[in-house]
């Protein structure tokens, strides 16, 4: 598999490490009423068949965290963007 890093260009899969779902949002830890949101954030994941936004780290390249849209059925990489917005 090849991933096109928006900074480094197309690279081999082994330069990257996978983290997981990029759509989850970290709740506010100072708000005491977020217990369910925290459980969702840390433990619960959907497992969609098809396009999925995922976080990957280009650890052997530019060290950027990337938001990769991957088709989990075909492994096709549909889009790669920096996870840090406005980068």
């Amino acid at each position: 598999m090849r991933i096109t890093c928006p900074y480094c260009g197309e690279r081999a899969l082994d330069e990257f490490t996978y983290r997981g779902d990029a759509t989850v949002k970290r709740p506010d830890s100072l708000d005491e009423n977020t217990a369910e949101a925290w459980v969702d954030y840390v433990y619960l994941r959907d497992n969609p068949a098809g396009p999925h936004k995922e976080l990957w780290h280009h650890g052997a390249g530019c060290h950027a965290w990337l938001e990769v849209t991957r088709d989990t059925v075909t492994h096709e990489i549909l889009d790669v963007a920096f996870a840090r917005k406005g980068c």
Partner: peptide, 20 residues
Amino acid sequence: SGPGSAVGPGVRFIGIGPGQ
């Protein structure tokens, strides 16, 4: 702005990551 070099007198600057 990307992974390339800019060479000034005495110093070469090489892009290694966004903003780095």
